[in-house]
Design a binder for these strands. Structure first.
Length: 470
DNA sequence: TTTTGAGTTGTTCGA
DNA sequence: GTCGAACAACTCAAA
C-alpha cells in the first residue's frame, strides 16, 4: 500500500487555529498531520503542575476543534518525528517558533536533521509581535531598558501582522496507529485532584480565550490604566495563560485593542504586550536569565535560608493579610492579580530576604500562566537584580498597598475569610488591632490566624542595609 | 568619545 | 490630611 503524503504541523505553544501562520502554510501545501509531542527531554522544571493541567484541557479543546484529529505523542521529539516519517510520506514539517533557550536548541537540531533528509522544514513567528532579533539598537546590540525598547525599538518597526483566518478546507490526517489519547499523556494529577478547583475557575482553549477577551474589551479596557491595579475588579484581561499556550496570539490582542478608540487605556494595554516582548528579548539575549542574576553584583548577596518562612509564604500563612490573600488566590485559582504578585514577591525577597529563585520556582509550578521569560524577568525586576530593575529602596509595604488598592478589603476578605470581620482599619494589619476588637471578631492571633512571621518595619530597614553594601 | 537626560508599578518623613 | 522631597548612585541610550 502506498504511504500517504502529508505535511506535519507540529503544535507547541500555538494551540489555536486562528492566526496560526505555520498551520496556514502547511494547509496550503496539502494534507496536514497535526501533532503535539509531550517532550520528555525537557528539563523536569520546564512545565509546572498548574501548566500541565492547563495543557491537558487546552489540548482537549484543540483536539475537538480539529474534529478529533490531533495526534498526540510522548517522548523525544526527534525520535517521534523520525518514526512518523517512516510510516507516512512526509513532505514537510511546519511549526511556529518557541523562544526558550532549550526549545531554540532543540528546534535548530531537528530542523537541520530533517532538512538533511530532504524535507521541507519551515518555522514561523506565531507568538511574538516582533522577533527578538529585529528589535535592536542602532549599534546592533539589544536594549536593556524597557521604554526605549518599546518606544524606539518596537513602535518604530513595521506594525505586526494582522491576524490570519483559520485555514479553510483543511484536509487532516489522524495517526490512528500511534497516537496516544489525551489521558495517556498523564498531565492531570492522579491521586490528589487539586486540579478540579483550578478547572472550576477557568475555561481553557481557543474559543474560551476569545470569549474572555471579548469580555475584557467590553468591560475592562475602558478602565484599564487605573483599574488594572485593583485586584477585586475585573479590569485586567486575564489573557496571560492563553497567551502562554498560544490559544490566542498577541497579534489578535493588539489589533483588537487598536480598533478601539485610542486613549491612555489602550496605550497602557499595548505597552503591557510590549512588556511581554521585552521579557522574551531579555531571555533571548540572556539565556541564563532564569538561573542567574542579570546583575553580577547580586551574586554575593546574602540571601537567607529559611524553610519555615518560605513554606508559610507558599501556603498563605505569613500573618500578613494581603500577602496571604495573594498566595491563596494562587493556590486556589492558579492565578494571581499582577499588583499582588509584586506585593508578595517584594515581601519574599525584601522582607523575608529569601532568594528570588525560590519565589520564581514556586510561581512557575503553581501559575497557569507560568512562562519562563515573563516569570524570570519579573522576579529579577522585583529583586532588583534585573537590568532595568526597580531601585533597591522600592520595597512594597503590604499594609499600605492593601489600603490603597483594596480599600474596601473585598479581595483580602475573599481569600482570608478568617479575618473578614475585622474593620477596614485593621484588616491589613491585625497585629495592630486592640484585644477587644480581635475578640469581638473571634480572632485569636497565633491560633485562628498567624502572628506576622516578620516585622515589616525592621525587615525593611535591614533589607535597605543589606542592599546598600552591594 | 563625551555628555546629557532618563529610568513601570514605592515608602517615609516632615512641613 | 496632603504634598514634595529624599532615598543612591548607576547604567543605559542617544545625540
Amino acid at each position: 500500500m502506498q504511504k500517504e503524503s502529508v505535511f506535519i504541523h507540529w503544535f507547541r505553544n500555538d494551540l489555536r487555529l486562528k492566526d496560526n501562520p505555520a498551520l496556514v502554510a502547511a494547509a496550503k501545501r496539502g494534507t496536514v498531520l497535526p501533532i503535539f509531542i509531550d517532550d520528555i527531554m525537557q528539563k523536569k522544571d520546564f512545565r509546572g503542575a498548574a501548566s500541565s493541567v492547563w495543557l491537558h484541557h487546552s489540548l482537549s479543546s484543540l483536539h475537538g476543534s480539529l474534529g478529533g484529529k490531533l495526534s498526540l505523542y510522548r517522548g523525544d521529539p526527534m525520535k517521534i518525528l523520525e518514526e512518523i516519517i517512516v510510516r507516512y510520506d512526509v513532505k514537510g514539517v511546519f511549526w511556529n517558533r518557541c523562544y526558550e533557550p532549550y526549545s531554540i536548541h532543540r528546534d535548530t537540531k531537528i530542523k537541520k536533521k530533517l532538512k538533511e533528509q530532504g524535507l521541507e522544514v519551515v518555522s514561523y513567528n506565531g507568538s511574538l509581535l516582533w522577533e527578538p532579533s529585529q528589535v535592536k539598537k542602532s549599534d546592533g546590540t539589544p536594549y536593556k531598558v524597557f521604554t526605549p525598547f518599546y518606544r524606539r525599538g518596537c513602535l518604530h518597526l513595521e506594525t505586526p501582522r494582522t491576524p490570519l483566518p483559520s485555514p479553510s478546507n483543511i484536509k487532516l490526517v489522524y495517526d490512528k496507529e500511534k497516537s496516544l489519547s489525551i489521558d495517556q499523556l498523564k498531565l492531570l494529577p492522579e491521586k490528589n485532584r487539586w486540579d478540579r478547583s483550578l478547572k472550576a475557575c477557568w475555561d481553557m482553549g481557543e474559543s474560551a480565550a476569545a470569549k474572555q477577551f471579548a469580555l475584557f474589551l467590553k468591560k475592562g479596557l475602558a478602565h484599564y490604566k487605573e483599574g488594572r491595579n485593583i485586584p477585586s475588579k475585573p479590569y485586567v484581561s486575564r489573557m496571560s495563560p492563553y497567551l502562554h499556550f498560544g490559544e490566542v496570539s498577541p497579534n489578535q490582542l493588539l489589533h483588537a485593542a487598536l480598533k478601539q478608540k485610542s486613549d491612555e487605556n489602550v496605550d497602557c494595554f499595548c505597552s503591557e504586550l510590549g512588556w511581554r516582548e521585552f521579557s522574551y528579548s531579555l531571555l533571548y539575549y540572556n539565556p541564563e536569565m532564569s538561573e542567574k542574576n542579570l546583575q553580577k553584583k547580586f551574586d554575593s548577596f546574602p540571601w537567607k535560608k529559611d524553610t519555615a518562612a518560605l513554606k508559610a509564604w507558599q501556603k498563605g500563612k505569613t500573618g500578613v493579610p494581603l500577602v496571604d490573600a495573594g498566595m491563596r488566590e494562587l493556590e486556589q485559582t492558579g492565578y494571581m492579580h499582577n499588583r499582588i504578585r509584586m506585593v508578595v514577591a517584594s515581601f519574599l525577597v525584601k522582607n523575608l530576604g529569601i532568594h528570588w529563585k525560590e519565589g520564581a520556582a514556586h510561581f512557575f509550578d503553581t501559575l497557569v500562566d507560568a512562562d519562563l521569560a515573563s516569570n524570570s524577568a519579573s522576579w529579577q525586576w522585583v529583586a532588583g537584580c534585573g537590568v532595568d530593575a526597580a531601585p533597591f529602596f522600592r520595597i512594597f509595604n503590604p499594609v499600605t498597598q492593601g489600603k490603597k488598592f483594596d480599600p474596601q478589603g473585598e479581595y483580602t476578605r475573599r481569600f482570608v475569610p478568617e479575618i473578614a470581620s475585622l474593620p477596614d482599619k485593621h484588616l491589613f494589619s491585625p497585629w495592630e488591632a486592640d484585644e477587644e476588637t480581635l475578640s469581638e471578631c473571634d480572632i485569636k492571633l497565633g491560633d485562628t490566624y498567624p502572628h506576622p512571621i516578620v516585622d515589616l518595619k525592621k525587615s525593611r530597614a535591614s533589607a535597605l542595609q543589606a542592599f546598600k553594601i552591594l
